[in-house]
Write a protein that binds this DNA or RNA. Structure first.
Lengths: 230, 230
DNA sequence: CCAAAAGTGTTCAACATACACCCATGA
DNA sequence: TCATGGGTGTATGTTGAACACTTTTGG
C-alpha cells in the first residue's frame, strides 16, 4: 500500500467555486453580487462548495441554479485562486467561473438571509476576499472572448435587434462603435437570421429582430471576428 | 461560531499541480514527461502536491525546480481539472500549469526512481489520468498565446537567429511560414535587437544573432502580432 | 565554382476605418 | 411635420499574402 500512503501524507484543502455572472440590461453591463447574511456586510460573488460527487463545472452550474434559477447558461472556467491567505479563516482554493446570462430569465431563488443585486461593472462596491481580482480577470476574459467568439448573444434575449447588439458591445468595451461598420461586420458572419418582425415601442421606426442561426453557431465558436475598440 | 461550523461541514480535497513543460530543440516542439517508479509504467506530466504554505503558482514553480533545476521560467496557469474520477484512487483536484523552458538550461534533478524524457508533441505516448486532455489544452493555449504575445522567445536561447525563430513558429503551428513575411512581421515589432555576431557552423553564410529588447518586452506582453498559419 | 542557407522588395487583395445622408413612424 | 432612432454605401489607407532572385561563404 505504498501508493495509498503517498496520498495519505498530503494535506487536503477546502474547495470553493465562485461565479462572475454577467448580465446586460440594455444599457450597461452588470454583474450579480450577493450580500451574505447579517454578520457579513460585504458584497461577494456567488459561490459555494464542491460536493464529493460533482465535477468543478457541475458544481458551478448547480450553485448558479440554486441561487438564481438559471440553467443551461454559458459557463466557462476562469482561473483557480489559491493564495494561502485569500480566505483568512480557513485556507480555501477557489475555482472561479464566469457566466453569461439573459437578465430577463433571472429570478432570484436566494433565501431570505441573502440579498442579491446587479451592479454596473464600472461601479462596483468593495468585494469579499480576492473577488475583485476575479472580477477584473473576468472582464478581461470577456473582452477577449467576445472579440473572437460569438458569445455576446448569450447576454441578449432570443430575439434582438442590431442596435441592441451594438449597445452590448459598446458596454463590454466601454466605447462606441460606428453603427455602419458594426452592422456590416456582424452581418458578414452570416450567423444572424433576420426576422420579419420589428421591435415596437422603443423607436418610432422600429428595428428588425434577428436571431442566432444555431446550426452555424456551434462551428462558429472557433472562428469569429476581431472586435477591438478603435 | 456559526461561521467556522459552516467551513467544518465541508469536504476537503487533495490538491495537485501538474505542469506541461514545453521545450524546443531547434527542430520540433517537445514536452517533458516522466515515468514514475517501478509499479507505474505510464508516462505522466510532472506534478506534485500543494503544500500548506504555498500559493498555487509557488507550488508549480517549486515542483518544476525540484524536478528540473529550472527557476525563473515562464509559467502560466492553464486550467483546473476536477472530474470526480480523474484519479481513480483518491479524489484529487489538479491545477495544470504550462511552462516554457530553454532546453539548454535543463538538467534533470530527478531521483533515480524517475525517468524523464522529451517527447515531440506530435508523437506522445499514452498518458496517466487526464493528462492527455491537459496537453491538448496546453497546445491550444500555446498557439493562441504565441500569436498574441511575445512568448516564443522563452523557448529559445538568449541569442537566436531569425531562421531559428521561424523554425520554432513552424513547429508550434505545425506549418511553414513564408520566411520573407515572417521576418518582416517579427522585425516590425521592434522587439529584437540585431547583434554584430553571426551564427557559425550551421550554414555557410551564417545568420545574424538577435536578442530580445527587454526594455520593450514587458509592455509588449499586451499587444503583439497575429500569427495564424496561412 | 558550387551547394546551401540567408537575406531582401513588390504587387495585389482583403479588410478596417472614417464618414453622411435618407427612411420610417408615432406623436 | 418633425423629432427620433434605423438603416445603408463609398472612398481611402493599412495590413496580410503570394511570390523569386541575389548574396555569402565553406568545402
Amino acid at each position: 500500500m505504498l501508493v495509498l500512503d503517498q496520498y495519505k501524507q498530503q494535506h487536503p484543502y477546502l474547495l470553493a467555486l465562485d461565479s462572475i455572472i454577467f448580465g446586460f440590461d440594455g444599457e450597461s453591463l452588470k454583474i450579480l453580487l450577493v450580500k451574505r447574511g447579517t454578520e457579513n456586510t460585504t458584497w461577494s460573488l456567488m459561490g459555494g462548495w464542491l460536493q464529493p460527487s460533482e465535477s468543478l463545472e457541475e458544481a458551478a452550474a448547480r450553485i448558479l441554479f440554486d441561487l438564481t434559477g438559471l440553467a443551461n447558461v454559458y459557463l466557462e472556467q476562469l482561473h483557480a485562486f489559491g493564495d494561502p491567505h485569500r480566505d483568512p479563516i480557513v485556507r480555501t482554493i477557489s475555482v472561479a467561473y464566469f457566466s453569461l446570462v439573459k437578465v430577463a430569465d433571472y429570478e432570484s431563488k436566494l433565501s431570505g438571509t441573502f440579498q442579491a443585486r446587479w451592479f454596473s461593472i464600472y461601479d462596483l462596491p468593495p468585494l469579499l476576499f480576492d473577488h475583485a481580482d476575479m472580477v477584473d480577470l473576468a472582464i478581461k476574459r470577456l473582452r477577449y472572448k467576445a472579440a473572437q467568439h460569438p458569445i455576446g448573444f448569450e447576454l441578449l434575449p432570443e430575439k434582438f435587434t442590431i442596435p441592441q447588439l451594438k449597445k452590448l458591445y459598446d458596454a463590454i468595451y466601454n466605447t462606441e462603435f460606428d453603427k455602419r461598420n458594426f452592422s456590416r461586420k456582424i452581418l458578414s458572419t452570416n450567423l444572424l437570421i433576420k426576422l420579419e418582425e420589428k421591435q415596437k415601442g422603443f423607436s418610432r421606426k422600429g428595428a428588425y429582430y434577428y436571431q442566432v442561426d444555431k446550426s452555424k453557431y456551434q462551428q462558429a465558436t472557433d472562428s469569429f471576428l476581431n472586435f477591438i475598440p478603435s
